[in-house]
């Protein structure tokens, strides 16, 4: 006949074994996770998985499973987009642009305010009338050259910030 205390001891040993083995499994799982992390880190950075392409070979940017961009684009690419885009810049500059260069970097489909559009990612560079250079990036409608977004504008640090540009109030506004 096994005494109650022996049963309790055997039970306690079993529980302890169970806890130990669970912890060991957990530890192993964590170590596995660590090692896979290390493997992930050790993968050369140029291991590239190209995003899916649509029928025209145009990349559909599915930004981290953003389902909206799966819809077909509304617009159709037109080679004239670049002329239109350049015209937009020239109009705004008052024809002061020099050496305007629009370098196409990337073509893809992007959701713009709920609409899917074929777009061109471009790098714009030009000089002003003082021969000073400016560059920025723009996302442009592949059909009509409309500007959808711009980014990477320069950060300019003038020697004298008091000479920064602005507009003077018309003297007809008498605020004194």
């Amino acid at each position: 006949m096994i005494s109650r205390s022996k049963i309790f001891t055997i039970f306690a040993v079993l529980v302890l074994c169970l806890v130990w083995s669970m912890q060991n499994m957990k530890k192993k799982a964590h170590e596995l996770a660590r090692s896979s992390a290390v493997v992930a880190q050790a993968v050369p950075p140029n291991t590239l998985v190209f995003p899916a392409s649509n029928k025209n070979g145009r990349e559909v940017i599915t930004r981290l499973q953003d389902k909206q961009t799966q819809k077909a684009p509304s617009n159709k690419p037109d080679p004239q987009w670049q002329d239109n885009f350049e015209k937009i810049l020239v109009i705004q500059s008052g024809s002061k642009l020099r050496d305007l260069e629009v370098k196409k970097l990337h073509s893809f489909v992007w959701s713009v305010g709920g609409q899917n559009l074929n777009v061109e990612s471009v790098l714009v560079s030009f000089k002003n009338e003082k021969n000073e250079s400016t560059k920025f990036n723009a996302l442009v409608d592949s059909q009509n050259g409309k500007i959808i977004q711009t980014w990477n504008q320069p950060v300019k640090d003038p020697g004298n910030p008091r000479e920064n540009f602005g507009v003077k109030l018309d003297p007809r506004y008498n605020n004194e």
Partner: peptide
Amino acid sequence: YIIDNRTDMQNLLADLLYKGFPVP
């Protein structure tokens, strides 16, 4: 305040573009 002087506005638009901000 409204600013609609032609020269001021043209200069402002050109300056913005030079800063890298096209306003289509």
